[in-house]
Design a binder for these strands. Structure first.
Lengths: 216, 216
DNA sequence: GTCAATGATCGTGTATACAAGAAGTGCCAC
DNA sequence: GTGGCACTTCTTGTATACACGATCATTGAC
């Protein structure tokens, strides 16, 4: 329970939002949440204030909190920023790679290979996340790493949708291969470029996203 | 008072931190803040929770809130990310520039010229901020714009220190000129490159920053 | 004289109470 | 039957009360 009910609730509610248990636009009633988690309204409110500060929900004065619905266009923008940050992380990783980071990248990369070969998109989804985190860490910029992890978290539901698209698994994995090569070769510019296109959702990948968002 | 004491307090305390009225490492006593602003502890706590979520302060369980001290290394990392995001904004601006944005950039740019010519670093500091904001807006990516503005805010105190360095004003302004040219020419890659070096603090500019941070 | 342990005090964490505003409902008039 | 106004109810915003944990100081022992 993390020693602190407010923070625990924040994570709990955040996860509920990101796993789409609370859908965009839904109203979050303080009292309902309080009874559901067996606490008073005070820590619930604190959790909500924090989520508002992060930008996951919106608290309108005297009218309660609602889950923010980013909408396809804004999600696209978020991927665009994510692509840029990942590109930076990749270029830093190529420059600063050390033994431990190299091993971490190799390990997560081969786990991706296995789940891609098995066609297990849920496993790949998880391994892919670890792979990207290994790259952030290899960049040795704590702030950048935090930003990347946070954005990655927020984009999680959409990433998951993306992987369902036909052939995306194998395409994604072959992109990973090129990225790993560039980083291990110390080619920062190439790593940056590859990661940018890997993460970004230009062209048909954007319309795929829009289509899958509409289904929900 | 924004209809909502908690939010008002958040802005108030945030400004106090960013203007160095509350210095890094300083402990923020809830009761002291409450009496100072003439409210109860509840809204103060809500404000603090939000600032914690943003990353400006750290709340340690049962031990109160302290202002986070980023330290030179982390500040450098923040500038590094900022440079990347501004680069993206610049490249988008070059691609998507319309009449209104063009005029906004021109207007803020010439205001920078005046204050640079006058050697007025405080005025330049403000005009520079507006100039960069005009570029964010020209990129037409709301999310990116928000991220840029937020990071810009957090780096504000350090930017201010930077401008005190000898000749920085005129150097900065001539860099602005090149940036404007690239954006107006529609050269996204060049705008990106120029903004990245303009905002980043490589080499001696980093040591300048460290030196000025030590003075405080 | 120094270090450790215990108690006192102060501040945070949570709950609850109360006030104020917004939304919904019902009634009345047209 | 429909639209508008008033009232009621529900929910949020703020204050306060209480409990638990942390820190600090004082006292005792080595």
């Amino acid at each position: 329970m993390s020693e602190n009910v407010g923070r625990w609730l924040r994570d709990e509610i955040e996860n509920s939002i990101l796993s789409n248990e609370f859908s965009p636009g839904e109203r979050l009633d303080e009292m309902v949440l309080a009874t559901r988690f067996g606490v008073s309204r005070t820590p619930v409110r604190e959790a909500l204030m924090q989520l508002d500060a992060i930008g996951l929900i919106e608290i309108r004065p005297r009218r309660g909190a609602i889950v923010i619905d980013p909408g396809p266009h804004r999600v696209y923008e978020m991927f665009e920023v994510m692509a840029e940050l990942e590109g930076l992380a990749g270029s830093l990783a190529a420059r600063r790679l050390d033994k431990a980071s190299r091993e971490a990248i190799t390990a997560t990369h081969s786990r991706c290979e296995q789940s891609a070969a098995a066609g297990d998109s849920d496993a790949y989804y998880y391994d892919n996340e670890e792979f990207h985190k290994a790259i952030y860490a290899a960049g040795r910029s704590e702030f950048l790493e935090e930003q990347c992890v946070q954005l990655h978290r927020r984009l999680r539901p959409y990433r998951r949708l993306q992987l369902r698209v036909r052939n995306r698994l194998s395409t994604s994995f072959s992109e990973h291969c090129a990225i790993v090569d560039a980083i291990f070769a110390g080619d920062g510019d190439e790593a940056r470029r590859l990661l940018r296109t890997h993460v970004g959702i230009q062209g048909e990948r954007f319309s795929d996203l829009v289509a899958s968002m509409a289904i929900r």
